[in-house]
Design a protein around this nucleic acid. Structure first.
Length: 663
DNA sequence: GCGTACTCACGTCC
DNA sequence: CGGACGTGAGTACG
């Protein structure tokens, strides 16, 4: 494997492949970072408090093909009622809002949904003795439990997934060490968070959910429950009851029923309920109750319904990925004979216009992959020219710039051996190293933990991850060599609007997934000229100052999670500076962001009787396809001399937490 | 308030 | 590999 990688680099033979080297000035730091690739739609993003009836009149003008039997206003008005209750100073203009039918209800004494959620919350808090410490510690405030924001949603998701990963790790090691069984780590982790009300958006609501963007992806149903996107852990239709009338909130279309999709913005969804009575063994019709009734009401009232599309995960074929595809309205509904002959409710969902594309992006990617539609702006189908096993496309849809000038190279040049107190030699496991096998010297170096789950997801950030390497006796397909197998995701280098080239993935990425290594020329720290770094925009430097952040949550720490707010702040065991200016891999195209979706992790393994340090990039959180990948470049330390050039560049990442400069 | 019914999960086993 | 199956969480509802 490693030999193969080295063969691809021909540094001094005189052979220069023109397809790899094209003269274009790199623009990496000249342009501001936009956090997502789908920027064109950014301004169209819904505000966290969704204005009611935004398209109500349009819909009234262009009546759906099947006119609703009873014209009723959207039950959204219940939400207004709640808002009025909670913020009495809000002026509400009745005349502009067609909902006279609800006038009586609006003036009703009881808010209909907020009281529900607070009842639930108080029930939860009774169960939890940790509640006061939670709110005091500020991990999730009481207000954030009802109404979230982006930061809270990310905190809940990251806490949940790191806990789940750790439980998976313990379960993977269980067979050899007789500890208790941890089946269903997803449920164990959600239990732990729910018991302490470590959730957000618990208040049920019609329409957009604060802190959740269209296009966000989820790998488990529980993730959507914990952040309030879809309250049912299994059920496909989420709804709430307001004034004796149920109203639908969100649906999950997983392909279990035969839902049809005519085009990307339309979904025909089947109602819930069996078509076959197991006891009496006869065919039955679905009933207009529960979710079906809620959908019917939402259709009549022309309420918005959140739609989540479930898709098969290409990496983990038995699993699913859920894509939040924004708000839809039910345009039509009817009853159809199902396969068994029983009546099945059908609801035709139509996507509201003006929303960022989400599911449509997946469809486009699928078409590019199958070759059934051509990629616009494609310059090269494989920037790596065969070095990577998966081609790296190069795309420019912005201007005429053709290709960056560099040589694709998948290894470290002039690496310095890393001194270790322990022997550099690898483990003597046969076949593959097994989690929980404490006789494996590589597992010993990782403090007894196997660093990756069985699906090759990194469990925890560490000062150093010890992988097996060419010196180990285990097979090359050992699961402790995740960072050495090259790209597994289909990557694309693309021209950003104003920050030069950037990197993104056509595939969805689960948090903790290995993305790529940072390759290039290792620069001797003793010889490093500070001015060289200022002129080299392709420097990776571990001795930069990085904002600490938290990615790991131990199960035992969950008890005092609010007091344990300290970030993981690791010292580098040995400084490492890499330049990818003249040669490198896709990592050289990753832009900086102050709120990144990727982080770097030092990885050590032995080759040729020496241990070498590598920099591996992992997904900080779930990343939807076509989202730009970014990491924190950190800041160089030497800025004391006021007149000296500090080498920092103005940051244009656009994040709310932007520090203003980097590098 | 509590038990029960219901559901477009998920992992495992064969 | 695919389908059956067992254990499920959260919610609504009686």
């Amino acid at each position: 494997m490693e030999e193969g990688l080295c063969k691809n680099f021909v540094p001094s033979s005189g052979f220069v492949d023109k397809t790899k080297i094209v003269e274009v000035k790199p623009l990496r730091s000249l342009a501001p970072v936009l956090p997502k690739s789908l920027q064109s739609s950014h301004s169209l993003r819904y505000p966290s408090v969704f204005p009611p009836f935004i398209v109500f009149e349009e819909v009234q003008e262009s009546q759906p093909s099947s006119p609703p039997p009873i014209p009723a206003p959207p039950i959204k008005s219940y939400k207004i009622l709640v808002e009025e209750e909670e913020t009495p100073h809000v002026v509400h203009d009745d005349s502009s809002t067609p909902m006279s039918v609800d006038d009586g209800q609006k003036r009703g004494p009881q808010p209909l949904n907020s009281c529900k959620s607070s009842q639930k919350r108080s029930k939860k808090t009774k169960e939890s003795h940790f509640d006061s410490s939670f709110s005091a510690g500020g991990a999730i405030s009481v207000a954030q439990r009802d109404d979230g924001d982006r930061e809270t949603v990310n905190l809940v998701l990251m806490t949940y997934d790191s806990l789940r990963r750790r439980l998976c790790q313990l379960e993977d090691a269980r067979e050899l060490n007789t500890t208790m069984s941890i089946k269903r780590a997803d449920l164990r982790a959600s239990n732990a968070l729910s018991a302490k009300a470590f959730r957000t958006n618990m208040k049920k609501r019609v329409g957009a959910v604060p802190g959740i963007d269209i296009g966000d992806i989820f790998f488990l149903r529980m993730e959507m429950v914990l952040v309030g996107l879809h309250g049912q852990s299994m059920g496909g239709i989420d709804y709430m009851t307001a004034k004796d009338e149920t109203v639908a909130l969100s649906i999950v279309s997983s392909g279990v029923y035969d839902d049809e999709t005519e085009d990307d913005d339309v979904l025909v969804y089947s109602g819930q309920g069996e078509n076959f009575n197991k006891k009496d063994k006869h065919v039955i019709d679905q009933k207009l109750q529960r979710g079906n009734l809620a959908l019917d009401n939402s259709s009549r009232r022309q309420n918005e319904v959140r739609v989540i599309r479930g898709l098969r995960d290409a990496v983990n074929k038995s699993a699913k990925i859920y894509v939040y595809d924004g708000l839809y309205k039910i345009q039509d509904s009817w009853i159809e004979k199902g396969k068994s002959g029983g009546g099945v409710f059908k609801y035709k969902f139509v996507r509201l216009p003006g929303q960022p594309s989400a599911f449509a992006v997946w469809k486009s990617v699928q078409k590019w992959k199958m070759g059934s539609s051509s990629r616009t702006g494609l310059i090269l189908s494989d920037l790596s020219n065969g070095v990577e096993s998966i081609p790296v496309s190069l795309v420019n849809e912005v201007d005429n710039e053709k290709c960056p000038f560099f040589q694709y190279f998948n290894d470290l040049l002039h690496p310095k051996p890393f001194s270790l107190a322990q022997s550099s030699y690898g483990c003597s496991c046969t076949k593959s190293c097994v989690p929980g096998d404490l006789s494996c010297s590589c597992i010993q170096r990782n403090e007894g933990d196997f660093p990756y789950t069985s699906t090759a997801v990194l469990v925890s950030r560490k000062q150093l991850v010890h992988e097996c390497g060419p010196m180990c006796k285990c097979f090359p397909n050992c699961k402790n060599r995740v960072s050495q197998s090259g790209l597994k995701l289909q990557m694309e280098v693309f021209k950003t609007k104003d920050r030069g080239w950037g990197l993104r993935s056509l595939d969805p990425i689960r948090a903790g997934t290995f993305i790529c290594e940072y390759t290039g020329e290792v620069i001797d720290r003793a010889k490093v000229n500070p001015y060289r770094e200022y002129n080299d925009e392709y420097i990776f430097n571990t001795s930069h100052i990085y904002d600490p952040f938290k990615w790991n949550y131990e199960p035992s720490l969950l008890e005092e999670i609010s007091s344990n707010v300290s970030s993981e702040d690791y010292c580098m065991p040995s400084p490492l500076i890499i330049s990818s200016k003249s040669s490198g891999n896709v990592a050289r195209f990753m832009n900086h962001s102050c709120s990144p979706n990727v982080f770097w992790q030092p990885v050590l393994y032995a080759e040729n009787n020496q241990s070498y340090l590598h920099i591996a990039f992992f997904a900080l959180r779930h990343i939807p396809p076509m989202s730009e990948l970014t990491y924190d470049y950190g800041c160089s330390g030497h800025v004391e001399g006021s007149n000296a050039p500090n080498g920092r560049k103005k940051c244009l990442c656009g994040s709310s937490k932007c520090r203003g400069s980097f590098g």
